[in-house]
Simulated scan of single mutants.
Amino acid sequence: MVGKANADDSAKESVKESVKAGRAPSMPMARDPSVAVAEEYEAARRKGTREAFELFIARHGDDPLAEQARAELKRLSR
């Protein structure tokens, strides 16, 4: 939590400095959603529980990685 607070503070300072310098504040690049989904899948795979895979499927049922999660669920059922 402290790390996030520090990151928020430094981001605010950066914006203030940009405004003082006469520049418009810039937004960070948006994160690639497919990377975020892949990270969630890897987290579910590391956990290796039915609950983790079911949660991933509930959140990302249309993603191609959901098929892999379903296969993992079948494997766990055996």
Results as ranks from 00 to 15, higher is better:
Arg70Gln: 12
Leu76Arg: 10
Phe56Gln: 01
Glu39Tyr: 11
Leu65Phe: 00
Val35Ala: 14
Asp32Pro: 00
Glu13Ala: 05
Arg31Val: 13
Pro25Trp: 04
Ser18Lys: 06
Ser10Met: 08
Ser18Tyr: 05
Ala52Thr: 02
His60Tyr: 14
Ala66Lys: 01
Ile57Arg: 08
Leu55Tyr: 02
Asp9Ser: 12
Ser18Gln: 15
Arg45Thr: 11
Leu55Gln: 14
Arg50Asp: 07
Asp62Cys: 01
Ala5Ile: 09
Gly48Ile: 02
Leu73Ala: 05
Ala36Val: 13
Ala30Cys: 09
Gly3Met: 06
Pro33Asp: 04
Gln68Thr: 12
Glu67Ile: 02
Ala44Ile: 03
Lys4Ala: 14
Asp8Lys: 07
Glu40Leu: 15
Leu73Glu: 02
Glu42Tyr: 11
Met1Ile: 10
Ala44His: 01
Lys4Phe: 07
Ala24Glu: 11
Asp9Ala: 10
Arg59Ile: 09
Lys74Arg: 08
Lys12Gly: 08
Glu42Cys: 07
Val2Asn: 15
Arg50Pro: 05
Arg59Trp: 12
Arg59Gly: 14
Gly48Ser: 07
Ala69Met: 04
Arg46Thr: 15
Ser14Trp: 12
Asp9Trp: 09
Lys16Met: 06
Lys74Ile: 07
Met1Cys: 02
Pro64Val: 09
Phe56Ile: 01
Ala38Gly: 04
Ala5Asn: 06
Ala71Gln: 01
Leu65Cys: 04
Gln68Cys: 09
Val2Trp: 14
Ala24Gly: 10
Arg45Glu: 12
Lys20Leu: 11
Lys74Thr: 10
Ala69Lys: 00
Asp32Cys: 00
Ser26Thr: 13
Ala71Thr: 02
Arg50His: 08
Lys4Met: 12
Pro25Asp: 03
Met27Asn: 06
Ala44Lys: 04
Ala36Gly: 14
Asp8Val: 05
Arg23Asn: 12
Arg45Asn: 10
Ser26Glu: 14
Ala21Ile: 01
Leu65Gly: 01
Gln68Gly: 10
Ala36Ser: 15
Gly22Ser: 03
Pro33Ala: 02
Lys20Met: 13
Ala44Tyr: 00
Ser77Pro: 07
Asp62Pro: 00
Glu67Leu: 05
His60Met: 08
Thr49Pro: 04
Ser14Glu: 13
Glu39Pro: 05
Pro64Gly: 13
Asp9Tyr: 08
Glu17Asn: 11
Arg31Asn: 08
Glu17Thr: 02
Glu17Met: 07
Arg46Lys: 15
Arg45Pro: 02
Met27Arg: 13
Arg59Thr: 07
Glu17Cys: 02
Ser77Thr: 12
Gly22His: 02
Ala58Val: 11
Ala5Lys: 09
Ser34Ile: 07
Arg75Trp: 05
Ala58Pro: 10
Gln68Arg: 15
Pro25Arg: 00
Met1Leu: 11
Tyr41Thr: 03
Gly3Glu: 08
Ser26Arg: 15
Leu73Val: 05
Arg70Thr: 04
Gly3Cys: 07
Ala69Ile: 04
